[in-house]
Design a protein around this nucleic acid. Structure first.
Length: 867
DNA sequence: ACTCTGCATGGTC
DNA sequence: TGACCATGCAGAG
């Protein structure tokens, strides 16, 4: 049938009924569905297509076990039988009784997961992939798998090789999966084990009528996120299994007469028990068909029961890489999250026993044998595949993997994948950086759910998930071998001056015990090794209360303050508020990647690692390649804080090292914050949630120079209170001050933070950065105030004897009582002597002896007067 | 002192 | 309860 005609008549060559209304049948190699008329579609959906239309065609065979007739000659039913070693076929039902069918992880069908996944990948499309992998269809086979999964799908869907077609994208062969009704007089077996309309039901669907279930995305959150996800299919029988032939590719003529190119078939093969060799099964001498078994039959344990964490989830990037040098069929085998030991210097990768026995050559001696493995770049490595006797069992390891691990830039927590190239059978070792999934409800920050760190999408994209923090390369008292995997700081990194902040890996919680990075002892080690060089000012400017956290409110001098105790704040990206020519409040934010300034709405909160691609508000500037909206000079005028951050504009347009470091520190802090109550900041003995987020006690025990968590937090709290009080006072100054201080006209005016524009202090939470910007403005306007007067250190221990007064929940609860001395000291310290406003403040202070409240008022007022 | 090797131990499932 | 496996550790080099 020509490609054009099928649009007008039923795709079923035995029907050819003309119609304007079509229903989808099986999926064709082109990626399109066979359009069927109602009658054919119904037959197809009912599993009667072959018996209805192919009854007179060749290809009918009987199940060797039950005798049921199965049509083996068309694409519609090719998946509904298994080929037996001794010849003949067996229907799936019988095969399942005798052997465990290949619970192959398959791929989401094009109509469901794959295209969406691909399309959702930035700069990646099926077409792209098709063009990359070759000029013609590239067959992808489903991995022979040992995986048993309780959440499984119909075995009728278990063998779904698909190819990537240049034109049609991904084509699932056999997407018309369904069980055959080979003979009308035979009861259709497994009536529900099929897909309708040629679609695999994946994703949200849960349970088939036969009790089989498909993957629940809730349990497999990655299913629709980043990776091409294998779908695990059901096996009812745990005592046996068979594997797909390794390399049976053939051409096949479908019932339309078209020649299917490079049709990769999967012949599920039963495995005779006596073929076990050293724990592995191989079928024949030609090596083309490999059948392996993880265990001796009769073993009480489910030999094919591999843990879900070993399910291969090869990524498209990896596929692309492999495809770049090989046109072979890639069969994902298994994967493993690198433990600290795996990624350590010892260079031993502990292999999951079943995987090793299933996919690696059998070894009888502990010495094992050299194993040639290709990496995704095609580079060849030779590892020693061996085992240790262990508890009457074996512990399989790959030795000498360190160079490869390093080559792949993998670290503890990352995932190493093993695939096999067919038909040559080469093992391919790939790697995947660990990633996390942003929670849809995490709002503008990162949250913790158990051990799963949920991070902003940008972090995810950049693999900057954080498990722990090591800043400045300081790792005190650590054991290199043990610490390195946690902090991911290599020896070379230690003491590195080029980059003081190292990429930290995410908490990986693939399994409870195995969570390399979550053991308490290591957590403690991490916290001891943390040396945050982020000033509290910098940090607080980016802090926001976590979503859904109800703050405790207290009143200071008539002003309500919110306090978030026991909760790690969410860290955002620094922004600079401004007013655009239309009078709209906007924020300017710098892309973390390209450092270009982008304008975003005023009310958005940006994650710490915000990048251009996340600029959904201005798609014309959603790439780092896109030019900045405003010229450098204009930006400089508009964003005086730029001058503060880096005195030279050039340092902004290029990568400002300091800014970068600061940002990285913020990232670090943000990431630390994402660790949340259980794992992150709160894991610190100082930051446990039992302690207020802004602790007020014990400060007297610490010296002024102390920058421990307690002191930092105390300072933090103090500043919070100060800022809010300042804000409150500034509001009281009234609109007049706001009008007086109306900035000179810029194309886009920086405005004096919310303090002049927001009237209800209770509805806002002034951030540290916003307060600081007041001074930025001053600076911009020519005043010599400190770039950030609040930025420099405030140490409550200046008057340690008054520590208790600083508590806002202390008796009076008024700021006037608690911070005159501190604020006085603070301003005396912060205001440069040459500063007009500073002098004015000093004068007033000396005149009336007032403290913080009026002082701040004067500061604001004085600033206006100075104008 | 350091690395490597082989095994043992103990936590987790 | 047993298998698995991450990791510790002792001994050898």
């Amino acid at each position: 049938m020509s490609s054009s005609s099928w649009k007008n008549v039923c795709f079923n060559s035995n029907c050819k009924e003309a119609s304007e209304k079509w229903r989808n049948g099986w999926r064709r190699r082109t990626g399109e569905y066979a359009h069927l008329c109602d009658r054919c579609a119904s037959a197809y959906e009912e599993g009667k297509f072959c018996e209805a239309f192919h009854s007179s065609t060749s290809g009918w065979r009987c199940c060797e076990s039950c005798g049921k007739q199965i049509h083996c000659g068309c694409i519609v039913s090719f998946h509904m039988f298994v080929l037996l070693d001794a010849g003949g076929i067996e229907c799936l039902t019988c095969a399942r009784k005798s052997f465990v069918l290949t619970p192959n992880p398959a791929w989401p069908p094009p109509s469901q997961s794959l295209p969406s996944q691909f399309e959702r990948r930035k700069g990646f499309s099926v077409k792209t992939l098709g063009s990359i992998v070759g000029s013609g269809p590239v067959p992808w086979r489903i991995a022979p798998s040992l995986f048993k999964e309780s959440n499984i799908q119909s075995e009728a869907q278990t063998r779904m090789p698909f190819e990537i077609d240049v034109l049609g994208g991904i084509n699932l062969f056999g997407t018309s999966e369904r069980l055959p009704t080979a003979s009308p007089d035979k009861k259709r077996e497994l009536p529900d084990e099929r897909c309708f309309n040629g679609k695999l039901i994946v994703g949200p669907f849960d349970t088939f009528q036969n009790g089989h279930t498909a993957l629940n995305p809730k349990e497999h959150p990655f299913l629709s996120v980043n990776n091409i996800q294998p779908i695990i299919f059901p096996i009812d029988d745990s005592s046996n299994f068979s594997l797909t032939t390794a390399s049976s590719s053939k051409t096949e003529q479908d019932d339309t007469g078209q020649l299917s190119a490079t049709f990769s078939t999967q012949n599920t093969i039963s495995i005779p028990v006596d073929k076990k060799v050293g724990g592995h099964y191989r079928t024949d001498s030609c090596g083309e068909t490999q059948v392996r078994n993880g265990k001796v039959q009769g073993d009480g344990r489910s030999r094919n029961q591999l843990l879900p964490r070993y399910r291969p989830q090869i990524t498209e990037e990896e596929l692309l890489q492999i495809s770049s040098y090989s046109k072979s069929v890639i069969t994902p085998l298994f994967e493993k999250t690198l433990s600290a030991s795996d990624a350590g210097r010892i260079g031993r990768l502990v292999l999951p026993k079943k995987c090793a026995e299933a996919y690696f050559p059998p070894i009888a001696q502990p010495e094992g044998l050299p194993l040639k493995v290709l990496d995704v770049k095609g580079k060849e490595w030779v590892f020693q595949f061996r085992f240790w006797p262990n508890n009457n069992s074996r512990m399989y390891v790959l030795e000498g993997i360190t160079p490869c691990i390093q080559s792949l830039r993998l670290q503890a927590g990352d995932v190493v994948t093993f695939s096999r190239l067919e038909p040559e059978g080469n093992l391919v070792m790939g790697g995947r950086k660990s990633s996390s999934v942003p929670s849809p409800d995490q709002g503008d920050g990162a949250v913790i759910k158990g051990n799963n760190v949920l991070i902003p999408a940008n972090c995810q994209a950049k693999n900057k998930c954080v498990e722990g923090i090591t800043v400045n390369g300081h790792m005190k008292g650590k054991s290199p071998s043990s610490f390195q995997p946690i902090s991911h700081v290599s020896k070379a990194d230690i003491g590195s001056t080029t980059s003081e902040i190292h990429e930290i890996k995410p908490i990986y919680s693939s399994k409870g015990k195995g969570s390399i990075l979550v053991s308490k002892c290591k957590r403690l080690r991490i916290e001891n090794d943390i040396e945050l060089k982020l000033s509290t000012d910098e940090a607080q400017g980016l802090m926001r209360p976590p979503a859904k956290i109800v703050p405790s409110v207290f009143v200071v001098d008539g002003c309500e303050f919110e306090e978030f105790e026991g909760t790690a704040p969410i860290i955002g990206r620094p922004t600079i508020l401004a007013i655009d020519p239309f009078g709209e409040k906007v924020k300017w934010v710098q892309c973390e990647d390209c450092s270009k300034w982008r304008k975003v709405p005023e009310d958005v909160f940006l994650p710490s690692g915000w990048i251009c691609s996340e600029n959904v508000w201005d798609l014309d500037r959603s790439r780092c390649l896109d030019a900045e909206e405003l010229a450098v000079e204009k930006l400089e005028d508009i964003l005086p804080a730029i001058n503060k951050v880096s005195s030279k504009r050039g340092e902004i347009t290029t990568k400002d090292a300091d800014m970068s470091v600061t940002q990285e520190r913020l990232d670090t802090l943000a990431n630390l914050a994402t660790l949340g109550d259980d794992e992150g900041i709160s894991a610190s003995s100082h930051f446990r949630s039992k302690r207020p987020w802004f602790p007020t006690e014990e400060s007297s025990k610490h010296k002024q120079s102390c920058d421990c968590a307690i002191c930092s937090s105390s300072k933090h709290r103090f500043r919070t209170l100060m800022e809010r009080y300042v804000k409150h006072q500034l509001e009281e100054i009234g609109e007049s001050a706001s009008q007086k201080s109306q900035p000179q006209q810029f194309p886009e005016q920086v405005y004096n933070v919310d303090t002049h524009t927001v009237t209800d202090a209770r509805n806002i939470t002034p951030t540290r950065g916003e307060v600081s910007k007041i001074v930025c403005l001053d600076y911009h306007n020519g005043r010599k105030s400190s770039p950030s007067p609040l930025k420099s250190q405030i140490d409550l221990n200046i008057h340690p004897e008054r520590e208790e007064d600083f508590s806002p929940v202390s008796e009076s609860g008024t700021m006037k009582q608690l911070h005159p001395h501190v604020t006085e000291k603070f301003f005396m310290q912060q205001m440069p002597s040459g500063s007009g406003i500073g002098n004015l403040v000093r004068t007033r202070m000396q005149q009336d002896g007032i403290g913080g409240a009026n002082l701040i008022s004067l500061a604001a007022d004085g600033g206006n007067q100075e104008n």
